[in-house]
Simulated assay, not measured.
Amino acid sequence: MPRASAADAAETARRVLEVATAHFAAQGYASASVDDIARAAGVTRGAVYHHYTSKPGLFAAVVAAHQQIISEAIVAATRNSAPDAAIHDGSHAFLDAITQGAAARILLIDGPAVLGWQEWRRLDAEGPEQELHTGLREAGASPALLDALTAALSGAMNELALWLAARQEDTAARRQAHMALDAVLDSVVPRS
């Protein structure tokens, strides 16, 4: 049997990741089955393990992909913003992106439990939290408080995202969440 081309292999890995995302979002990590993921992706269980090594490895790839999506949403929202507005624009983009679709369950509920706190924190620090740190620095947050402010705001936004994710269809809750986020951000980095 001929070996798959690099393009075929990449497409298989992408398809498995897409299907795994849907399964982890719908069923949670514990209930999702590698056999079901493989079947839905149209590949063998061995193909899943070839690309992702293990179920935790597959989940880690799903988490990393979602962290990248969140980071890209933040960057896109802040691309043309002045520094003091960018911290607000990026934080609102984070809140919207992390409460859409599978992101909250994968990143905030199953992520820490499956990956372990240290790995989950590392991934967050390399993605959205890094964007927050940069935004705070550029907006003029106190250098002496920069790391502490980043941690405090990151935690507050993650909790706000969990609160909002439990109220997906509640437009009043979404409005309240964004107003609360502005109130917190204004106390740290007032807009000019």
Rank of each mutant, 00 (worst) to 15 (best):
L149S: 10
A144K: 12
L132P: 02
T53S: 08
L132C: 04
I109G: 08
A7S: 09
L132W: 03
R174K: 12
A183N: 06
E126S: 13
P190F: 13
T53P: 00
G46N: 12
G57C: 05
L153A: 00
I109F: 13
V75E: 07
Q176Y: 15
D170F: 12
A104H: 04
G90D: 01
R167S: 12
A172F: 14
A152N: 09
A4L: 07
I70H: 11
R174Y: 01
T53W: 14
A104R: 10
A13V: 00
T99D: 08
V184P: 06
V184C: 08
D89N: 09
A26I: 14
L153F: 05
W117F: 11
A41E: 07
H23I: 13
D8W: 02
A61V: 04
A6G: 02
D147N: 06
G42V: 00
E126I: 02
R45V: 15
L107I: 10
P56N: 06
H50N: 04
M179C: 10
E159L: 14
R137V: 01
T150A: 11
A141G: 04
D110R: 08
G57D: 08
A151E: 02
F94E: 07
D186T: 12
L58T: 00
P2H: 05
A152C: 11
N80C: 06
H178E: 07
A172V: 15
A22E: 12
H23N: 11
Q100E: 10
A9M: 07
M179F: 12
A7F: 08
E131G: 06
K55F: 01
A172R: 15
E126H: 01
A30M: 02
D36Y: 01
A82S: 06
W117S: 12
L160I: 03
R121E: 12
A26M: 10
A125K: 08
M157N: 11
A82V: 15
T150R: 07
R137E: 13
T12Y: 05
A9V: 00
T53Y: 09
A20I: 03
S154D: 08
N80Y: 14
A183C: 10
S5A: 04
G57L: 05
I109D: 15
T150N: 15
H51R: 09
A148Y: 11
R122H: 13
G155F: 01
T78S: 06
L58H: 07
I109W: 07
A104W: 09
V62W: 12
A32D: 11
H133W: 04
R39F: 07
R122N: 10
